[in-house]
């Protein structure tokens, strides 16, 4: 029985939208380990009941880690060297 789900990055769209005010699946993330740049939607998502981990599809380094506790979101982006976000044109 595996309580976790291995998904593609688009599965994290709703979770990231709860934190960021932009649509995040097209944001470009550069891996701090191997330097590969991929859209969030192309990352590998491990959706565990303990938290969600977005990993680099090239080297599997954790790029973004998110835990929702009783009152807060905890967000660790230390595995990403850079995140490039284009604001939604509809919101401007």
């Amino acid at each position: 029985m595996d309580a976790s789900r291995r998904l593609d990055g688009n599965a994290a769209a709703g979770l990231l939208r709860e934190i960021f005010c932009w649509e995040m699946t097209s944001a470009a993330v550069t891996c701090g380990n191997c330097g590969a740049t991929n859209a969030v939607g192309a990352l590998i998502i491990y959706a565990s009941p303990m938290g969600t981990v977005l990993r680099c599809p090239a080297c599997e380094q954790p790029l973004v880690r998110v835990v929702r506790t009783s009152n807060d979101y905890w967000l660790d982006i230390s595995g990403a060297r850079c995140i490039q976000v284009t604001p939604d044109t509809a919101a401007t």
Binding site: M1, S4, Y46, G51, E60
Partner: peptide, 10 residues
């Protein structure tokens, strides 16, 4: 009575 598996990676 199960033994759930939680995975945050491969």
């Amino acid at each position: 009575n199960d033994f759930p598996v939680l995975s945050a990676g491969p």
